[in-house]
């Protein structure tokens, strides 16, 4: 546990959230959203911690964490690819793009590459239907995608990550 101090910071941040939400299980979703923001995912000890702090069973917290698609129980890669599989994207070829990404990165939906760089997650709709097919990498949206374009975008992110390492 070499990063104790930063862990403390995170618990402190979570405690502040719990305080703000009045340790109320009625705000469980908001609390978990903040916890995920702090930790990047919901580690099991945090599920137990939130349960104890809000006075409900860990099963109840786990039930909420597994019900909603936003919550993750595993860490994600540096770049989270959210591939839209909404109706408009489906009609405009999102399934093919999923194959292209899976093929290029060697991962399927829900997985992370071995180097921890990319995670792939398909989502129901990003609401940019007029630019379909669409994907979002971290906070950036990419529209009017083709197989070629997807590969070159992935390569850009790879280069960006490598450049970051060198610097």
């Amino acid at each position: 546990m070499s990063n104790c101090s930063c862990k403390d910071d995170r618990i402190q941040a979570l405690d502040a959230v719990l305080e703000e939400c009045g340790h109320d299980a009625g705000n469980l979703i908001t609390i978990l959203q903040n916890a995920q923001e702090i930790y990047g995912y919901l580690p099991s000890e945090i599920i137990y911690y939130v349960a104890a702090q809000t006075g409900v069973s860990p099963a109840r917290v786990m039930g909420v964490a597994t019900f909603y698609s936003q919550f993750r129980l595993e860490p994600v890669g540096k770049y989270l690819i959210m591939l839209c599989k909404g109706t408009a994207c489906h009609v405009n070829g999102a399934d093919t793009l999923e194959d292209v990404i899976s093929n290029e990165l060697g991962i399927t939906n829900g997985q992370t590459t071995k180097d921890g760089l990319f995670s792939l997650k398909t989502v129901a709709c990003l609401g940019c239907c007029s630019l379909s097919p669409v994907m979002m990498i971290n906070d950036e949206v990419f529209g009017l995608l083709t197989s070629d374009k997807v590969i070159s975008i992935l390569n850009e992110f790879r280069n960006k990550a490598e450049g970051g390492k060198d610097a």
Partner: peptide, 25 residues
């Protein structure tokens, strides 16, 4: 406001209420 957490069924009004109360929708 409260941000949902991604569940289509929460568009159903009673499921939405359950979710607002911090439960499974």
């Amino acid at each position: 406001y409260m941000a949902g957490a991604g569940a289509f069924v929460c568009g159903e009004e009673t499921a939405l209420i359950e979710s607002l109360e911090g439960k499974r929708g």
